[in-house]
Every structure is written in C-alpha cells, then in structure tokens.
Nucleic acid binder design. Structure first.
Lengths: 246, 246
DNA sequence: ACTCTCCTTCGTACAATGTACCAACTTCTA
DNA sequence: TAGAAGTTGGTACATTGTACGAAGGAGAGT
C-alpha cells in the first residue's frame, strides 16, 4: 500500500471525465461504504468493490491511484454526514459544540468501523468544512486563537475516544455472556487478586446483569453526552466562558 | 486472519515448555514490539519476527495460534508499562486518576502505533491489573459502582482520544511545511470559503509558525494534562466530588 | 466516411502476507 | 535402546494491492 505522501492529494486531481467514464468517484466511495457498513471494513477490497460495481478490478485505478485514496474518499463521504446543514447550527458556543459533537458521535455510531480505519485519511474538503463549522461555533467566545483551538481539540479528543470505545464495547466487550474473553475475566476475578473488580461485580453472576447495573441502564449516547457536558463545564470554568443558564 | 473469538484466549493456554523450547512468548512479544517501535506496526510480520529471532517462520506458531494472539501479547506487554508500581499510586481520586492517565499517555507516546493497532486486542492480565488500579484510585470517592465506572470511562475516552490525535498530528499533520496535505489546505483556504479558518491562520504564511502560534508553544503533554484537568473538574462538579485544594 | 488519437476498460502477473500441512529433528521416558 | 511426544521449520496456497500493457471505443480532423 502506497503512502499518503507521494504526489498530490486526490482532491487536487480532476475526476476523469473528458470522454465518458462509466463511474464517478462518488460511486466508488458509496459502494465501498455500503460494503463496510454491511460486512465490516475488512470486507472492503478492490476486487470486491469492483465486483459490486460490475467492473473489472483494475478499472477502479482509473479513478483512484491507490486504495488509500479510496479510503480517503470514504472518509470524506462520512465527514459530509457530520456537517450540520447551513443555518441549523445553534447559537452559543456551548450549544453549538454540543450539537456538532453529538452529531459526529451519531454518525460514527452508524459507521462503527470508521473511527478505527479512517484514522490515517488525509483532511478532505468536508473535513475542512467541519473544522470551519467548529470554529464558527466558538467564534463568539472571545477566546484567542490558541484557546479556541485547544477547546476544539479537547472536544475532538473526547468524541473520538468515546466513539472508539463504544465500538469496542459493542463488538465483544463485557456485556455478551459466554465469550472466551468473558470466561477468562471471570476466572481471573475468581483468583481474588482483583478485589476492587470483584466488588464491582458483586451480587450478580450473570455478566449481562452486571453490565446493565454498571451502565445504570443509561444508553451509550446518554453516557457520551454526560461526559461531554462535564468536559465543557470544566473547560468553561478554566477558560472563563459563560454557560447557558438552564 | 483468524477471529479473536474462536477458542480460548492465549492466556488460558499454558506456554509450551515441557521439553525445552527455544523461546518464550515474552521473547516473541519483545521482538515484535522492537520492530513496531523502530519501523512501525506495518513492519511486524510473522516472517520478520521469526527472522529477527533467528527462527523459522512457522516456529512462531508453536507459541501462538495466530498473529492476533501475538498482537494480544504485544498489547499486554504495553499494559505492563502502564501499571503504576505497587505503592506508588498517589492517594486521592484526583491525583490517582491523573497519575494513571498521565502515565498511560506517556506510554502511548512511546509506542505511537499502539492506540491505533492494538484496538482489537482482548483484555489480558495486565489490562485487568490496570483496571483494578483505576478502581482503586476512585475507591475513596464514595460514588456507587455505576458512577465510578462512568468516571473511569470518561477518563479513558479522553486518554485514548488524545493519544490517537497526538500521533496523528506527529505523523504528517499540519505542522510540517510542504506536504501535499498542507498545500491542499492552503489552496482551499485561499478560495475564501473558510473565513474562520482563514482568520485562524492570519498573520503568518509559514505553516510551522501558525502551528506554534495555535498551540501557544505548549507541548502536547501539557495540552493533554490541561484537558484532563478540565474533564476531572467538570466531573467533580457533576458528581459532587471533593477536589484537592491547591 | 475514415483514420488517428487518446480516454477508458480490464486480463494477467507478481510480490507480500497469514497460515495449513507435514516431515524431520530432538529430548525425555520406559 | 526404542518409542513417544515435544519442537522446528520447509513448502505450498489463498488472498491482498497493484504494475504493466493490450484491447475497446468515442470524438476530432481530414
């Protein structure tokens, strides 16, 4: 797989189209996205995308120089979903950032493989629009540039981390009952070497019960929003920002 | 590549050793870790590890069932670094969590590829010890189990997100001058479609200058700790926790 | 209409990877 | 000294990304 660094980014090269190509880059990205959502990112191979499109494998390389570029296209398509439609950004830094972060989280939950596999994708046009939108949200804070930047970074860190961990939990974390991982954990706890974990799990033998107790029946989305709120309140205190009174 | 799910976890199977094997699992993990640190995770192949160890490729499969298991070993080795030595955990939930999170961040910075590639690794013994240690840190808060769990989750989300983003920034983010990505971003900004980004970058044409201005000359580690502090303060407010007066 | 150009398609081929299979070697036990 | 079983590693195969280059087809110039 070629590096991202050689030559110009895909968005700087015009899409083929002087004659009449069979496909567009958007179609390739859509096909790839569909495969990833349905069967996971690992199922996305050049051969597979081409097959779904009814084309020869090497045809894809007329639209894209490497698979990494195709992944960049996938990333940009997802960033488009993240964008808040023009005019719908709530006023005020707190509500604005909350809206953006929550929407981002929702999108990432729809494409759970994304945070993990699109990590190396270069910044595309939609990622830039997202950044622009984020800056717009904090424009009214009165903060200087470095502080605004830092605030956005903190929020982004938290969103990414949450999405990543939520995916992890879904795909074989503690909740499901009889996985090898769960059995191993049970056995380890039974040794008595982990008193605090043991206390956490006390009162229930069924892992599912324990899990729902630990999460307090709160959905992942609510947990995400609570953490976000804590983070924003903490940041507000440190940066002397006004919180909406509510 | 086999799934993690089939059969028992590697830690439940005894290490070969009834006769006199040439290697130990720890040696495989150490060799793999050395390769990943020196040349990136992509350079870690079974053939390569074996070569470095002076063994035939298939020999590795006597110690490990799949490459995923070897990766699990790598992950567990890193989690060992994350553990705070017994007795050195500072008292108090705030200082305890800060110590654990910071140490974790430091370790992840030493193995920048880790947060990205070890994501699917199953929970091993050292990960459990880490969890136990984290629970110990919040034991004195008086919080109930779900709240303690939520607090740790928030911190973990933030640490993972920060480590991930720090790695991203290092490996070809904005700072470096003349990458294809930087040139693309410059060109986009020049269109005038991104007024807020433009304002952010105003006053300097040199990307490196802009970057150092945006980060305010603060190191990644300091930025991490400030965000962590904001998060912990926000959580303290929401959960009625006592902060150390300082 | 015809040809020439070059845009577009895609079959073949190759290097790299994880790993199944199995033969050979080695070491302990009877 | 045999036999059994633990340990090593060579060969082979399927799967991946993609380089190369031949073939098909649309439009321009005559």
């Amino acid at each position: 797989m070629a590096s991202v660094e050689d030559g110009a980014l895909i968005w700087t090269r015009p899409e083929p189209g002087t004659r009449r190509p069979k496909f567009t880059r958007d179609q390739l990205a859509a096909a790839a996205l569909a495969i990833a959502d349905a069967e996971g990112f690992a199922a996305v191979s050049m051969r597979r995308i081409a097959a779904d499109l009814g084309a020869g494998t090497m045809t894809l390389y007329h639209y894209v120089r490497t698979k990494d570029e195709l992944v960049a296209l996938m990333d940009d398509a997802i960033m488009a979903e993240v964008l808040i439609p023009p005019g719908e950004l709530p006023p005020g830094w707190y509500d604005g950032l909350t809206a953006i972060a929550t929407r981002t989280w929702d999108v990432l939950m729809r494409h759970p493989w994304a945070p993990h596999h699109l990590r190396n994708a270069p910044t595309g046009p939609n990622a830039m629009r997202h950044f622009e939108q984020s800056l717009a949200a904090v424009a009214g804070t009165g903060l200087d540039a470095p502080s605004r930047f830092a605030l956005l970074g903190m929020v982004d860190d938290y969103v990414q981390g949450s999405a990543l961990r939520a995916d992890e939990a879904r795909s074989g974390g503690e909740p499901t009952a009889d996985t090898a991982a769960a059995r191993f954990a049970q056995a380890q706890i039974a040794t008595g070497d982990y008193p605090h974990i043991q206390a956490l799990f006390s009162g229930a033998d069924d892992p599912a019960t324990v899990w729902s107790h630990l999460t307090g029946g709160v959905s992942g989305r609510d947990r995400f929003q609570r953490g976000l709120s804590a983070l924003l309140h903490g940041a507000a205190t440190r940066m002397n920002l006004t919180l909406p009174d509510r």
